[in-house]
């Protein structure tokens, strides 16, 4: 995938200039969805002095915020959003092991799931990607997820935040069932539960006893950060 020749020229530059130039380009690469460039710059930066956490907080997160804003404003659409998410995820794959190595604590462990009966996952995938870019460790449980599976994972993986997505009016009740299962299993106090997806509203979130709601992926990160006090 990667083109090894592409960056030989830049390797001749002095490290300081390289770092500054590249990092601005990391933001741009995520915005334009250029996964190859995003990875190369991240690799380069990690081989130097750059603090891995600042790559996330100063470049990846702002880039996903900006692309999210453009999406809300109909300045870009689902393909562009998914391209950016992919570019960001590629960079995150390189950064995460380094974060763990350096002992930096991630903001928290999150599970994301589309609830039982529902197969829509574009929005859920975006929320997962943006949370990852926002400094969370994400466990993606996929679509059509049984409440029992969610409970199991909370118990096994010491999860702090549960993100539930539903796109169908007919599957919104499964959010309630999932929350009830979490309660019944005695782990409700351990987790913050966020709900979202096009038909979900703040009122519905309140009714079923969720802890947070947002109508966008970027909003999801803000609520999640608040939940862990970051």
């Amino acid at each position: 995938m990667q083109n090894p020749d592409k960056f030989t020229k830049e390797k001749n530059l002095t490290p300081i200039i390289l770092a500054m130039k590249d990092l601005k380009e990391l933001y741009e690469a995520v915005i334009t969805g250029d996964a190859v460039t995003a990875r190369s710059i991240t690799e380069e930066a990690l081989s130097g002095e750059t603090d891995p956490l600042s790559l996330v907080s100063e470049h990846l997160t702002p880039a996903m915020d900006e692309i999210g804003r453009r999406f809300e404003a109909s300045e870009c659409f689902v393909p562009e959003l998914l391209l950016s998410a992919r570019a960001m995820k590629g960079a995150m794959e390189l950064i995460q092991p380094r974060l763990l190595e350096s002992g930096v604590e991630l903001l928290g462990r999150v599970i994301v799931a589309t609830v039982k009966g529902d197969l829509h996952d574009i929005g859920k995938n975006l929320v997962a990607a943006v949370l990852e870019g926002g400094g969370f460790e994400v466990i993606d449980m996929g679509v059509n997820v049984e409440p029992e599976k969610i409970v199991e994972t909370i118990k096994e993986k010491d999860v702090q935040i549960v993100v539930l997505s539903a796109l169908l009016t007919t599957t919104m009740p499964a959010m309630k069932t999932s929350i009830e299962a979490i309660e019944a299993a005695g782990v409700r106090d351990k987790v913050t539960i966020l709900v979202g997806g096009a038909p979900v509203t703040q009122r519905f979130a309140d009714e079923i006893g969720a802890d947070g709601y947002s109508d966008s992926a970027v909003g999801a990160v803000a609520v999640a950060r608040k939940a862990v006090g970051a």
Partner: peptide
């Protein structure tokens, strides 16, 4: 696959 098709355009 809808997620893949969206990327295929590019």
């Amino acid at each position: 696959g809808i997620n893949t098709l969206m990327l295929d355009f590019y």
